[in-house]
Design a binder for these strands. Sequence first.
RNA 1: GGUCUCGUAGCUCAGUUGGAUAGAGCAUCUGCCUUCUAAGCAGAGGGUCACAGGUUCGAAUCCUGUCGAGAUCACCA
Length: 588
Amino acid sequence: MIEKLLKKDIIEVLEDLYGIKDYDLQFQKTRKEFDGDITLVVFPFTNFSKKSPEETGNEIGEILNLSDFIYSFNVVKGFLNLVINDDIWLAQLSDALKDNSFGFINANKEAPTYLVEYCSPNTNKPLHLGHIRNNLLGFSVAEILKASGKNVQKVQIINDRGIHICKSMIAWQEFGNNETPETNNIKGDHLVGKYYVKFDQQYKLEVTDLVKNGIKHEEAEKTSPIFIKAQEMLLKWEAKDPDVIALWKKMNSWVYQGFTQTHKRLGVNFDKNYYESETYLLGKEVVKKGLDMKVFYTKPDGSVWIDLSDQGLDEKIVLRSDGTAVYMTQDIGTAIKRHEDFNFSHMTYTVGNEQDYHFKVLFLILEKLGYSWSKNCFHLSYGMVDLPSGKMKSREGTVVDADDIMEQMFQNAKNIAADLGKLDQLSENEAQELYETVGMGALKYFMLKVDPKKRMLFDPKESIDFNGNTGPFIQYAYARINSILRKNNSIIGIDMGVNISDKERELIKLILEFPKLIQESANSYSPALVANYIFELVKEFNSYYQSTSILNAESESLISFRVALSKKIAEIIKSGMLLLCIKVPQRM
RNA sequence: GGUCUCGUAGCUCAGUUGGAUAGAGCAUCUGCCUUCUAAGCAGAGGGUCACAGGUUCGAAUCCUGUCGAGAUCACCA
């Protein structure tokens, strides 16, 4: 905000002094070790001024210093450090205080619609830590986009059909003894996952047996009885066999109950679900159209392909020789359907970076088919969550289960609270709620503070931290401010004559960055920017809190100013953390 | 092998279109609760930004190459 005001003045000065027009100014925050608030980089002007960087900086500074904004200036090497007048900061803070949704832009009807897809699970096993990253990223990006003034729809596509679910179904039929979530008190998605594992075990046994009997390994993998049964079941499903469909519906409903529970605890939600069983046939029509347009071509065996070698990519199949759809076909169809459903301007797919290639191809195909909105489709490609031993592998039992880790975080929060003797003032219900808030806060912040693009490491042996750059650290600061506000919440308004300290000035500057930060994290689809910003704000506040008494300040106007400053910071912490799907406690 | 991504302190990570002496947290060590909540604060040590060139006033950031890690290149999803 301040930059905008300054910009006008500086551009004038540059034109008067050196005849420079419309130069793209480079501002940066003045580093802590120097005196000043905003720094203008003057190196680029030396070409025009024909003087040293120092002289150039001084020349510009002298004239700017006449302005009301500037209190003083200094030049170090090629950097012109500007000290802004305190009443400017106070006025800006005062404006921010009046704004109840500071930093947030409400989307009106004309605002563009952004679709955000995330989660998109298979229905044959429960969610794991990787899904937690996916869900949190997708949800958070959606919230950040909303905050930046977009209309947002959260969607997922549920991969509810195919050979994988048939494997669970067959294994349940063969070994399940009619076990249900109710009879054995097991969460539905875990129950179905159990039979998916059971299938795999049985399959391996059978393959081993066949190999012992002299059959080649490759052959054995294709002829094992249980594998054949699964394939037959898939065919029956596609033929809409009533018994198979009934079983399929029953087992999927178990899974959905489980997913709903997990999503609820995680705190994420969706505006619309797409089911692959309903969309897997979409796209075939489009392939025909694409053939007419000569975007695709047919091979002798009848399969349909696209040649992307001129874009540096390969040939890619879009329809099997038997005429059935592949993943790509469905995704083409689903994308088009979504555009019909929502007329979105942008669509984001939150999917791991192992599918980078797939989405590159998908967007290219949509473009070649003439869907101009394809250029606004974005693959939010995030890195895998790895264990110290490498990738999580369900077959090796190294998968970190989503429900387990959430429960573990709750227990950790409870234990730590007990160690710290925090239990006294709270009722049992309040205490339970607090453990949940803090435990989940630690987990979610841990996942979101890392740049989405980067792969991240999770070590199950070392539990997630509660100190330092963590969710609970931030929540604690919020609770402390709340404690102050419970004692004094009377803000008379900012006295413009109040003297502010360096720390207070730094805090005001940080507060004023919040609106821009939301826009930046929306533009870069990065909740990590929000996380790191809140951390910086809280760190600065904690230092201030420790060194400065808020309620015992020397004068009424100073108390009022400090309470107002703290309150605004608490508001930003709360609204910022909500963008990360993290709640903040009143006490902790 | 082709394509893509990544490599910053012992560990986990920041570092906005190239800018000043590369920053946090954890871990280690030293202090601070009679004062608004110590899940906190203040401080110390810890670096060849993988390596080598190049571009320029200036490079962790851009380009090229080398090494290392990962992903992907299926009539799987």
